[in-house]
Design a protein around this nucleic acid. Structure first.
Lengths: 176, 176
DNA sequence: GTGTACATGTAAAGTGTTACATGATTTC
DNA sequence: GAAATCATGTAACACTTTACATGTACAC
């Protein structure tokens, strides 16, 4: 899903500024299944405005820089509906961690257990962050998606805790 | 992880051609946590060869196009070890499915249940494919990584089957 | 006073995908 | 005879990140 569609979708849920969209994909409800930087969000918003799919309302603020609040137009809603009619493409899961586990086995097996222990700690932190997202007032769709993410984090954590010794055995084999 | 490092890593496990690397990331042990196209693999292999990190052996074949089998040099092994010393970056999970669920709620809620049912079917297919990868003769690292992937597929499947009615309730709410 | 949050935007650089070009062989 | 597999490679295009530019206000 490109940044353009992502912005359109987020704006279908609520009006937002570019800055807020960035926060949503970096830390909020969207953070575990999408990503985008300022360098792609701002140009996308400009283009969507020129195409008439969103509109922009400048908000003058006194103690803060002015902001531009974007909202979906009816053309934008139609466009989003049209895009969503296609069935979604497959998930893209890229994991440097798994790649490192696989490659480290050949190249530096002594690192494996630290790698897994670090990862377990990271999953625990991430899990807490995600559970906090549930506290706020959210729609059924948001809840469904966040709980999906939590289920995935838990599954990863369970797997790593239950199987970390299997990599230890690889290490033993290498040392013998 | 960029394609360059991915190629280096795969070649640390076994010699391979560009074509074989593509198959590994598209269908094999690497398919659920990495991706790369010919358009990025072939140039990466050329560059790695010029940098002295891998070497290339041309294999003339009679009934097939000639192939170039690449293997890691000791400089390449050192480079890979160096790259793997850094702790792996966070996973990147991009899911058009989850985005669609979230956005469809606002824009076309009648699609939600089909979306989830389709997805459940896809997970079941994927799960069978991944379980087949375990049949072949693999290292402990490969087994660890594939079983990790299987655990994730099962968790997603369980979650969707256990919670699909929650999205149905959203639909009811919208219709009332 | 140092860092973080707020807030928008551009340009250059990097990375990657898609589509094309080529062509024999094997399987359905 | 059509489609898939084997096999390599390039060029154009798309997309994204990184770094820069600018500036206020608040908390520690």
């Amino acid at each position: 899903m490109d940044v353009r569609t992502l912005c359109l979708g987020i704006l279908s849920l609520s009006d937002a500024t570019g800055y807020q969209i960035k926060k949503l994909v970096a830390e909020g409800n969207f953070s575990f299944f999408s990503e985008a930087s300022y360098g792609s969000i701002y140009p996308a918003l400009t283009k969507l405005t020129n195409d008439g799919l969103i509109r922009c309302k400048a908000m003058v603020q006194e103690k803060r820089p002015d902001k531009k609040v974007y909202s979906l137009t009816s053309a934008g809603e139609a466009e989003l509906t049209h895009i969503l009619r296609k069935s979604p493409g497959p998930d893209k899961n890229r994991s440097e961690f798994l790649a490192t586990v696989l490659f480290a086995e050949a190249v530096s097996p002594e690192r494996l257990s630290d790698l897994v222990e670090d990862r377990i700690r990271e999953h625990k932190t991430k899990l807490r962050t995600m559970e906090n997202l549930l506290d706020s007032d959210i729609t059924a769709g948001s809840r469904f998606v966040i709980e999906y993410g939590i289920a995935m984090q838990k599954a990863a954590l369970d797997y790593l805790m239950g199987n970390k010794t299997k990599l230890g055995k690889t290490l033993e084999k290498v040392l013998n």
